[in-house]
Design a protein around this nucleic acid. Structure first.
Length: 140
DNA sequence: GCCAACGTTGGC
DNA sequence: GCCAACGTTGGC
């Protein structure tokens, strides 16, 4: 099952918020590359949640509750005739026993090509299977 | 608060 | 279509 990493500012939508809400629509992705990745997520996929700002750590994991769909709040088509903005529902958010800090991820050579390290502004990215195992080892 | 990286916008 | 200016993200 593919895995992904979503970034969020915890003051906007934290892992605890996701947990509290149960099933939550993940919206607000604007970056074209991030949207390309978001459209590839499928129901049941694993979604690691990363907190930006002061925390800077992968804090837990959730599950895609369905496939991506057009953002009802932002209708409109891109130049290729597809809906411009996509969103997805997440569920089953649960925290890691120990958050995996960005500093530890950066220090681990297995992550040297991971977009979280190499590409600061990407908010949705694929997590290769080997790195999914590495993240679970680090975090719980 | 600063800055690097990247995207977007608008004049030409 | 080019490119300079500006905006945004997010670490430091």
């Amino acid at each position: 099952m593919p895995a992904w990493l979503f970034k969020t500012e915890p003051s906007e939508c934290s892992l605890a918020d996701l947990q509290r809400a149960g099933r939550t629509t993940w919206d607000g992705v604007n970056n074209p590359t991030a949207l390309l990745h978001l459209r590839e997520v499928r129901r049941g996929d694993t979604v690691f949640i990363y907190h930006t700002g002061d925390e800077r750590a992968v804090v837990g994991v959730a599950r895609a509750a369905g496939d991506p769909f057009e953002d009802p709040a932002r209708p409109g088509l891109n130049p290729r005739g597809e809906p411009k903005f996509a969103v997805i529902d997440l569920e089953e958010a649960r925290p890691f026993a120990r958050p995996a800090p960005l500093a530890a991820i950066k220090a681990d050579p297995r992550f040297k090509d991971f977009p979280l390290v190499t590409m600061g502004r990407l908010s949705v990215m694929p997590v290769p299977a080997a790195l999914e195992r590495a993240l679970r080892d680090m975090g719980g």
